[in-house]
Amino acid sequence: MSNVEPGRHLPLESLHESAGARFGAFAGWNMPLTYPAGVMKEHLHTREKAGLFDISHMQLFAVEGDEAAAFLSHACPLDAAAIGMGKSKYTVLLNEKAGIIDDLIITQLSATRFMVVANAGNAAKDEAHFRALAANFSVSLEALPRVLIALQGPEAESVLTNAGLDLSALTFMTATEPKPNWFASRSGYTGEDGFEVAMPVTEAQAFVEKLLADERVMWIGLAARDSLRLEAGLCLHGQDIDETTDPQSAGILWAIPKRVREEGTFVGAEALRAIHAKGSDQKRVGLKPEGRQPVRAGAPVIDADGTVVGRVTSGGFGPSAGHPIAMGYVAKNLAEPGTQLFTEVRGNRLELRVATLPFTPHRYRKG
């Protein structure tokens, strides 16, 4: 059901090899982690020009049928029929306890047709979950074999136009099908303006080589993708959100329309309403370590008395921010920006401050 045959190798792996990529395992795939330029240069290049990411490990699903909107509105806490033609919506897939199975982008292409983009590590689980729910609806679900690339940064639109793909009419979180079996959205995972473009495997190499011929474009690996999304305050499923966290604690309740939250019949609706009524014990926050020592995922967050009051879920150095950055969960009464907290790294106590997210401003192209 994945994009390629067993073995989990990207269709364009040879291009990454010839670019000198250093590979590593991620979500069961052999993925480029860094290129010879290194994480710092890759990160800053994306913020300044145009970074090219191969995200073909992610899975596209085409959902089609007379009851496609009703099906998606049951599977996810959204009103799928109200997304709007050519518009995309960030949402989540919940279990019955309102735990987050995955976070998704769903695009409405017509009254009866939608595109769903799922995370690589959850694609098989998502598909099984979707298919179980689809049994009660007149709907088809197709996992699409596509190469998916992201071009992110202030020069992204110009680069694509020069390569013969004019997406300048799109604004943030809108999408189109520019050619048969192609899908393109103005979206991304970096906080920058940018695009995600899916295409048939047979057409991908020629198009990607055309992009790479532009001197403004640089391959960017997973390591810089992680520092970029962390600076932008964006969650990584499996770290910042998972089936043990709910949308309210995660600070993504904004993705669920109020009417849907109060009246919807989506999976996990009753549990989410109960959580909302009671209030969360913890809250996802930004964390700024004092000094130059980065703090990594899994580190405890402790108060002045040494009591564990939370945990770090993502952490590293922010090249654009110019200092270490982190995200995590803390007790709700300690979530105010500026609150002094601590963590321990190799036996040493380090000071943390609760920080406002994002660490760097979003630069999306709004309408």
Rank of each mutant, 00 (worst) to 15 (best):
R284C: 12
T171N: 09
H57R: 11
I100T: 05
T91G: 11
W219V: 01
A150Q: 08
F53L: 13
A274Y: 06
V159T: 02
Q282E: 15
L170W: 08
M327F: 09
G347S: 08
A80S: 10
N3L: 10
F130E: 03
L94D: 08
L160V: 03
S280G: 04
F266A: 06
M327K: 03
F207N: 00
G318H: 07
K179D: 04
R292P: 00
K332H: 14
E64S: 15
T46Y: 12
S73W: 06
A19N: 02
A175D: 11
G347V: 03
L350R: 11
V267C: 02
K366P: 00
A143M: 08
L94Q: 09
D305C: 04
M1V: 15
P257T: 08
G238N: 10
G7K: 03
G347E: 03
S314R: 04
S88F: 09
G28T: 06
H43C: 06
V309F: 13
S18P: 00
I275W: 09
V39A: 10
L94R: 06
E17Y: 05
E155H: 13
V312A: 06
L109K: 07
V39Y: 00
Q248R: 11
N95G: 12
A355I: 01
W29H: 10
G188T: 06
A277Q: 14
A75H: 05
M1E: 14
T307A: 15
E203N: 12
T171Q: 06
G328V: 11
A128S: 12
R216A: 14
V260I: 15
E290F: 05
F183D: 02
P257S: 06
G268Y: 01
A274M: 06
